[in-house]
Design a protein around this nucleic acid. Structure first.
Lengths: 374, 374
DNA sequence: TAGAGCCTGGACAACGTTGTCAGATGCAGG
DNA sequence: CCTGCATCTGACAACGTTGTCCAGGCTCTA
């Protein structure tokens, strides 16, 4: 249960640029019980306190804390003692303000709980870590507004860079930020209406290969179930499917295609529809991992053997009967590549935006090699 | 490839408290190409700039930006114009410093790429979002030092709260932070040597139920493959397994148990060993999802039908032949519960640390109901 | 012994924001 | 016309850190 007293997007809504004269919600500050009387940070000692206790100047403490040279061992010892005694820890908020670098990068993705994005996020984190940066991530839940909200909130926090898995198709709202120096890389889907670094999988090629694979095994009536075509990956995969069909000179019937369908219930209905009717499909191409999972369930209940190729790999896919043939993309490689480009931007090594496409890999495991059952 | 020129843990190593006189690595600042001449934030306008342009005072801009009352519509319009023209965005670093709240919480987990932690992390994020806070997460990779490093780095950034999935078993290093007001909740595993809020699954009860389930189906020689017992969850599950065996008055033989084993190669060997020998096990209890996956693979190659119960649910587990019986825990509920307690701490509603155990659920799908094959 | 040069330590300002407080303005009523 | 009050606005300090710069004490050399 979520706390009913909290407003939904407090901090973010305080941001002024997006909309003009809508009523603003005052940021809800997170209240905290005053545990000890003291300053706002719950009575935390500052360098000043340490300096006073050690009987040295403020800057000397700073030097010790940061391992800068020019402090006698004796002085250093005294300062260290004071630090330990007071339990001092440097306030990086202040440090950030002063230095102008936050040593943190933001990642806006679709859903952290999706098994595809976990490894991607982890890969970004590892690269960030290697550069001494922390990672802040947020899920857009496929909502363009929420994506923008998140990305701009991250910019307000002055993340040094931003990795975005777009939910929307217009990213002009990031232009001022990029101009102001926020390194930005888009992953998995291209940026909309701005020129920026993009790292993608070869969705078109992968889907084309996958569909061609089914065709090569004798299928002609091949169904396609995918997400909304406004999502780039979905559109590209659909295009790949169509291209393969066209290559084989198979006219695609509308009833074979189901777009914008991703929740289990509707995928199920879509699949069942394709499989009934007078001219049922003999194979299905599933446009993403979630669709694939549901289709597998549907096919498991079918009497007929229907072929299946899915986009995105699944754990255990090899252990099913039959094993699930998939077009696999390397989520970790996507994340790593994007993050590395991000830091190259920050280095100043990288100037012109590029579009990188990572290859996909067809993994045959059985389900895609079933012959048509009609 | 990681940038070879970057030191590994630059920012974190600068933290002074942990160790005494080891050489400190100077934080590597993330360099950035100077895109435009200007201030440190890559020429970002500040409120001062906006004020100058709008011909008003600094504080008036602040008022407009934060939607505070007491600004005439005309003045507000002028300020908004200046904001839009300059592309101003409030610098939350400064705001944080001034307000003493960061509106962000930290999550230290084991591995973001693990399908168990994805949903957990997402659940924490959702709660944080409902409270207007952002989530910073980091992976400890099961390394206690790295856990500490991360947690303290987050504290240095003055996160308002910390959700920790412990890798180590001594968290006294967090005492000064907690005393200083950092709300702290441990999830999935208990805190070591400090008194703190803890949210756990009932690992003991779940494992006991799982093992008892196998016993109830006639098994007596039941193998156990789990992680290092220094990991609390692993130890508890082992304890549950032992308890079930004891309840049934079955003496456990050493060769049935394999502890501290989690990488596929070694799990495979361990399983194969249990299944060979003169008195092979007829069932295996797998101590976590990664172990389960590997055991499934091994069993798929076996001629005999060996029963299996795994701890943690798996996607597609129902579609295997036979379906995999598991003791499921609700990762999202763990995360949600922990995060909610965290914010209750911040509210001041919550004072005394508690230990919460969430129940597990035995899901029978076939593999756990196979009779012994001897 | 004086002068130059080095080493250590500290005073001070600045980073960009918000809280406090007092000044300015406008209007109503005596 | 002046007073009192309400409304709007802005000057200023403070948050905790780091960069700059200078002072004082020391050593070394001529």
């Amino acid at each position: 249960m979520l706390d009913a007293t909290s407003s939904y997007k407090p901090w973010i809504d305080a941001s002024p640029v997006d909309e003009q004269d809508r009523t603003r919600i005052v940021p809800e500050t997170i209240r905290r019980a005053d545990r000890t009387p003291g300053n706002r940070y719950g009575n935390r000692p500052t360098m000043k306190d340490v300096a006073a206790r050690a009987g040295v100047g403020l800057k000397t403490v700073s030097r010790v804390v940061n391992g800068e040279p020019g402090v006698t061992p004796e002085t250093e010892r005294r300062v260290q003692e004071a630090i330990d005694a007071l339990g001092f820890r440097r306030n990086d908020s202040a440090r950030v303000l002063r230095k102008g670098r936050t040593a943190s990068i933001g990642l806006v993705l679709e859903d952290l709980a999706d098994p595809f994005y976990g490894p991607l996020s982890r890969a970004v984190e590892e690269v960030a870590r290697a550069h001494g940066a922390l990672l802040i991530n947020g899920s857009s839940a496929e909502d363009p507004d929420r994506e923008q909200e998140l990305a701009l909130a991250l910019c307000a926090r002055r993340v040094d860079g931003l990795v975005v898995i777009p939910a929307g198709d217009d990213h002009r709202y990031l232009e001022p930020e990029i101009r102001a120096g926020v390194a930005t890389v888009f992953v998995d889907r291209p940026a909309g209406k701005i020129d920026a670094d993009v790292v993608l999988s070869d969705n078109y090629g992968g889907a084309r290969e996958g569909a061609a694979h089914l065709i090569a095994h004798g299928h002609r009536r091949i169904g396609f179930i995918g997400d909304m075509p406004r999502i780039h990956t979905a559109a590209e995969r659909l295009r790949g499917y169509r291209a393969a069909m066209e290559d084989a000179e198979i006219p695609v019937e509308d009833s074979w295609m189901s777009l914008g369908v991703t929740d289990p219930e509707r995928v199920r209905r879509a699949a069942e529809e394709m499989l009934s009717g007078p001219r049922p499909v003999t194979a299905i191409f599933a446009g993403n991992n979630r669709v694939t999972v549901t289709v597998i369930r549907v096919l498991a209940e079918e009497a007929r053997r229907v072929a299946l190729v899915g986009f995105d790999d699944l754990e255990l896919a090899d252990l099913l009967q039959p094993g699930v043939t998939v077009v696999a993309q390397d989520a970790a490689a996507l994340g790593r590549t994007a993050a590395e480009r991000l830091f190259r931007q920050l280095d100043g090594t990288l100037i012109t935006p590029e579009r990188i496409e990572l290859p996909t890999r067809l993994i045959t495991r059985g389900s895609g090699e079933l012959p048509p059952a009609d």
